[in-house]
């Protein structure tokens, strides 16, 4: 069953009701690139805090930590640039491109849908609803555990990175972060905790997508590949 707004929109688009173009190409590209970048960031970041076992021999023969940190820094630049591009696309793209930045928190109807979704995930509802974009519950989670957290990770991450940069633009932009959080060591701690939360959310995100794909009879995973949402039934 489609939600009220979605039904209206589907009607407005006439005969496209059972197959709609939701996610445009730049958004899809960003989504999959971002998943790889985030995985690289999490693994390299984990290893920076807890390095692999020590290597013997001459120091000049190895560059393990150097490489791990290089991967982390390159990936973090890609993540940051991707996020900036994604913010641009929120303005340039269709309405589904704006969803994760602006959840309609002042819309009572939307909160009812969130509650409905909560009941659905708690097995209290037996017929899932279908949504054109993100389902309201997913959107809320996405907003807190991706959008907000991603900017938090950027701030703490570049705050730490700025420590190695002298008086450049990096320091001017992000140098205030570490002192605000109580010093470099604390900032490391928060950054690492953010990684764990984000990775936990990523696992949840994959699980929920697969589950909805199976149960709610409309496409999710292929939608993020092709852009088209198919409504079976």
């Amino acid at each position: 069953m489609l939600s009220q707004n979605d039904v209206q929109e589907a009607k407005a688009r006439g005969n496209l009701a059972y197959s709609l173009y939701i996610y445009e190409a730049p958004l899809r590209l960003w989504h999959w690139a971002n998943s790889i970048i985030m995985l690289a960031l999490a693994i390299s970041g984990y290893l920076i805090g807890s390095p692999p076992p020590t290597l013997t021999g001459e120091a000049a023969d190895h560059y393990v930590m150097g490489n791990i940190r290089f991967i982390h820094f390159v990936a973090s630049y890609l993540f940051a640039i991707g996020l900036v591009a994604r913010v641009y696309w929120a303005f340039a793209g269709n309405i589904y491109a704006r969803q994760i930045f602006l959840p309609p928190v002042f819309n009572k109807e939307w909160w009812k849908e969130v509650l409905f979704e909560l009941r659905w995930y708690l097995f209290l509802e037996h017929t899932p609803k279908k949504y054109l974009g993100h389902n309201p519950m997913a959107l809320l989670m996405m907003f807190f555990f991706f959008t907000i957290l991603a900017f938090g990770m950027l701030l703490t991450g570049f705050g730490l990175y700025a420590e190695g940069a002298d008086d450049g633009w990096m320091n001017a932009l992000f140098g205030w972060v570490a002192p605000l959080l109580g010093g470099s060591q604390q900032t490391h701690g928060w950054h690492r905790l953010g990684m764990w939360i984000m990775m936990s959310f990523a696992v949840l995100h994959v699980y929920a997508a697969i589950r909805e794909e199976v149960l709610s009879k409309h496409s999710l995973i292929s939608t993020m590949i092709s852009g088209w949402r198919m409504f079976k039934e």
Binding site: L55, A59, A60, H62, M65, G66
Partner: peptide, 8 residues
């Protein structure tokens, strides 16, 4: 140098 090499 030992840090960058991964020697701990």
């Amino acid at each position: 140098g030992h840090f960058d090499a991964g020697q701990f």
